[in-house]
Amino acid sequence: MTKPVLHAACQAFIEQRMAAAAQAMQAAQESANSDTKSSAGDKYETGREMATQERDRHAAQLHQARQLAAELARISPDAPCDAVRPGALVQTSLGWFYLAISAGRLVVDGQEYFAVSGAAPVAGALKGKRAGEEALFNGQTVRVLAVA
C-alpha cells in the first residue's frame, strides 16, 4: 500500500526539519554564549543580538515543524477515502497527490507524488471530488482518475 509509505516519508521530512532547526538553534545559542565582551561594547551587543535573532528564527522553524507533525498525526494512512480530503491519495490528470502536509515531491518505487497540505490551492480545487469528476485549477480542467 502506497499511502503508509508516503505518510512515513512525510514523517521523515518533518523529523529532518525538526533536527535541522534544533541543531541551528543550538549553534546560534553557543555563538551568543561564546561572544566575549570586548572594549568595543557595541560590537559585542550587536553580535549577541544577531545570534539571539538567529536562534529565535530557528525556534520558529522548529515550532512550524511541530505543527506539521501534529497535522500529520491527525491523518490515518490506513483509512480509505472515496472523495478528496486530508489523507487521500489522488491520481489526477496532473499527477499523483497525497493530501497530508506540504512536503513537496516524493518518489516511491519510481513513481512521483506530491505531498500537499489541505490548504494548498490544488487541494482546495479537488476537495470533495470523486473519481471521474473534474475540477478547475489554474485555468485548466483537472480530471480525478482515482481516489484512495
Rank of each mutant, 00 (worst) to 15 (best):
R143E: 15
L94W: 02
G139K: 01
A148V: 05
F13I: 10
Q61W: 05
V142Q: 01
P77Y: 04
A8G: 10
A40T: 08
L106F: 08
Q53E: 10
A21Y: 06
Q91F: 00
V108L: 15
T92D: 01
R66A: 06
M18D: 10
A69T: 04
A22M: 06
R85A: 14
A19P: 07
Q26C: 03
L145G: 10
D35T: 14
A125V: 03
Q64T: 11
A19Y: 07
G139Y: 02
A19I: 05
W96E: 00
W96H: 07
F13V: 09
A9Q: 13
F114H: 10
G139T: 11
A123H: 03
R57I: 02
F13H: 13
Q111Y: 02
G95W: 00
K3F: 04
F97A: 00
A65G: 11
A100G: 13
Y113R: 00
E30V: 07
Q140S: 13
A146Y: 12
R105G: 01
S102L: 06
M50C: 03
A119H: 02
R143L: 15
G47E: 07
A32G: 15
A103S: 06
H7P: 13
E15K: 11
V144I: 15
K43H: 12
R57F: 09
E30P: 08
S31L: 13
F13Y: 12
L89F: 01
Q29P: 01
S31K: 12
A59M: 12
Q26E: 14
S31Y: 02
Q67E: 08
L106S: 04
P80Y: 11
Q26F: 06
L126P: 03
A9E: 11
S117Y: 03
E133I: 04
Q67R: 08
L145C: 08
A79M: 12
A22C: 03
G87P: 06
L62W: 08
Q53I: 04
A119N: 08
I101R: 01
V90C: 11
Q16Y: 11
A115E: 03
M50K: 13
G87D: 05
M18W: 05
Q67C: 04
A115T: 00
I14C: 02
R57W: 05
R130H: 15
A146Q: 15
Q111P: 11
P77R: 08
A40I: 04
Y44G: 11
A20S: 09
R66T: 04
A125M: 06
A65V: 08
D56K: 13
A59E: 15
E112G: 05
S76G: 13
V5Y: 08
R143Y: 09
I14L: 02
A119W: 02
A12R: 14
H58T: 07
F137Y: 15
G47I: 07
F13C: 10
A123L: 01
R74F: 03
V116Q: 00
I101M: 00
A28V: 12
G128T: 15
P77W: 03
Y44Q: 12
Y44L: 05
L89R: 06
R74D: 10
Q26P: 01
V144P: 00
H63Y: 11
M1A: 14
A135F: 04
